[in-house]
Amino acid sequence: MTEAPFRPREKLIEKQKYYQSIHRHTYLKGPLDKITSVTIPLALAAASMYMIGRGIYNMSHGIGKKE
């Protein structure tokens, strides 16, 4: 017994041609890949650098100490 294909062969060939024609890195080939591969990590890095900087500032000035 054979199983029906998950996606029609024509659609698969069309998608393969599209992705093979793009001359970018593999992880940036999709339409929304810039958001997940670039923007989110940059936002997390910026937020963590801000929090580290704020913590260092607070420690050096003695702000927020528990008595």
Results as ranks from 00 to 15, higher is better:
M1C: 05
M1P: 03
M1G: 08
E3N: 09
E3I: 11
E3S: 11
P5Y: 09
P5R: 08
P5V: 00
F6S: 06
F6E: 03
R7Y: 10
R7F: 12
R7Q: 11
R7H: 07
R7L: 08
R9Y: 04
E10L: 14
L12S: 11
I13P: 00
I13C: 08
E14Y: 03
E14C: 03
K15Q: 14
K15P: 00
K15I: 14
Q16E: 10
Q16T: 12
Q16H: 10
Q16P: 00
K17L: 09
Y18H: 15
Y18T: 13
Y18I: 14
Y18W: 13
Y18S: 12
Y19I: 13
Y19A: 06
Q20W: 06
Q20A: 06
S21T: 11
S21M: 12
S21A: 15
H23C: 13
H23N: 15
H23Q: 15
R24C: 07
R24E: 02
R24S: 07
H25S: 15
H25V: 01
H25A: 15
H25E: 15
T26G: 03
T26N: 04
T26K: 04
Y27A: 13
Y27D: 11
L28P: 07
L28M: 13
K29C: 07
G30K: 01
G30W: 00
P31G: 02
P31F: 15
P31Y: 15
P31W: 08
L32P: 05
L32S: 15
L32M: 13
D33G: 13
D33Y: 06
D33N: 14
D33I: 07
I35T: 05
T36E: 02
T36F: 03
V38W: 10
I40D: 02
P41Q: 10
L42Q: 04
L42V: 05
L42A: 09
A43L: 05
A43S: 02
A43I: 05
L44W: 09
L44S: 07
L44F: 14
L44Y: 11
A45H: 03
A45C: 05
A45E: 02
A46H: 03
A46L: 07
A47S: 09
S48L: 12
S48G: 11
S48W: 09
M49I: 13
Y50W: 01
Y50M: 09
I52P: 00
I52A: 04
G53N: 01
G53F: 00
G53T: 00
R54Q: 09
I56S: 03
I56W: 03
Y57H: 12
N58C: 04
N58E: 13
H61V: 08
H61T: 05
H61K: 14
H61I: 01
H61G: 08
G62W: 01
G62M: 14
G62V: 14
G62F: 05
G62E: 08
I63S: 04
K65E: 01
K65S: 09
K66I: 15
E67H: 07
E67L: 09
E67R: 15
